[in-house]
Design a protein around this nucleic acid. Structure first.
Lengths: 184, 184
DNA sequence: AGCTAAACGGACACAATGTCCACTTAACGA
DNA sequence: TCGTTAAGTGGACATTGTGTCCGTTTAGCT
């Protein structure tokens, strides 16, 4: 179990990191800056988090877990019960909201291939793969990764930065979902 | 115009960078290492290329240009003449081959959002956008970026690393293309 | 109160970045 | 062929970030 001072410092670190991610460019937040902002030593920081993405991922996990529960046992169309195409569209919409709300965290967590290594990605893939199979579309293994690609945080940030609205993105993703998994 | 020694050094730099990208992890090639491998000073290197992605992009451009010409004026289904869904599938297949062949360069060029800033990305987007419009699918602006997302080099490398074959990926992309742009 | 193991924090060695500037050399005209 | 000159060169430098190491502190338990 965790000692009291350790717990206190973990909280300080997470709060400080959250502040820094939100303040400027999330991709240029450094371990050094987090330690300074949190008022702890470098050694203390490295004891728990090996790098910046792991901190961002820790902050993100909390928000993602809520969506994961809705996918598993929530109301349709997010949860079980609706047709696959509808469920994929609902998943896209929920993920888009999540990106919009926490874009600075997702950009902080982004480190190229690190994205695929997280537990969360594995969850999303398993979910989409299940929907693809249920829709009877061939090649669910490759297709599930492909259908997740448009949710890449960098792409979302790029699209938003070009003045594209959240609704426009959601709507395009809905088109993609309906056409790809349409009953046929 | 370019002086003789400058041209010589540019060639040395590009050759050295190509060697380094191919040798190890393309994402951990440094400007320092390129300068050393090329046998030129740091100042010389920085005079022409401000960072690693710009070097990788320069190496890549040559290969991409050939595909761009085929898209504009080559034989169908890559070039004009075939239905949009078929053309998108052909484009996906060609890009997959390009990724497979030059994955180390594309990974070297990858630097988060830098990918979207290149001229090549603009070309691909314009092409896909045109196909989406031609197919009469709504929301071509957002959809063209979304349909390009599965070609992200990191994702391709990840899929290949998990033992997925090139043909399997191509086939899934073909499914995506046919279903998304199918004549309604 | 005293013990112990966990936690702390800052110093250190290392690696990479980007800039600066004194020196070199290719190109060109006399 | 030889000066001139501006482009090109290369390495030293200051700066920033990384990850580790270890002497010191402190929470939790008896």
């Amino acid at each position: 179990m965790e000692r009291a001072d350790a717990a206190r410092n973990r909280a300080k670190v997470l709060a400080a990191a959250n502040r820094l991610f939100a303040a400027g460019d999330p991709r240029s937040v450094t371990m050094d800056a987090v330690a300074r902002e949190a008022g702890v030593g470098r050694g203390t920081l490295y004891r728990r988090y090996p790098d910046i993405p792991s901190i961002a991922t820790a902050l993100l996990d909390e928000h993602e877990r809520s969506l994961q529960e809705k996918l598993l046992g929530g109301e349709p169309p997010l949860g079980p019960g609706a047709p696959p195409a509808r469920r994929l569209a609902a998943f896209y919409a929920a993920m888009t909201d999540l990106l919009e709300q926490h874009i600075h965290l997702t950009l902080g967590a982004e480190s190229g291939s690190a994205r695929f290594a997280t537990g969360a990605y594995g969850f999303w893939r398993a979910h989409v793969r299940m929907l693809v199979k249920e829709a009877g579309v061939p090649g669910p293994d490759a297709l599930s990764d492909i259908l997740l690609a448009p949710l890449e945080p960098e792409l979302f940030a790029y699209q938003r930065g070009r003045g594209r609205g959240v609704e426009e993105i959601k709507s395009a993703l809905e088109t993609l979902a309906e056409r790809t998994l349409a009953a046929g």
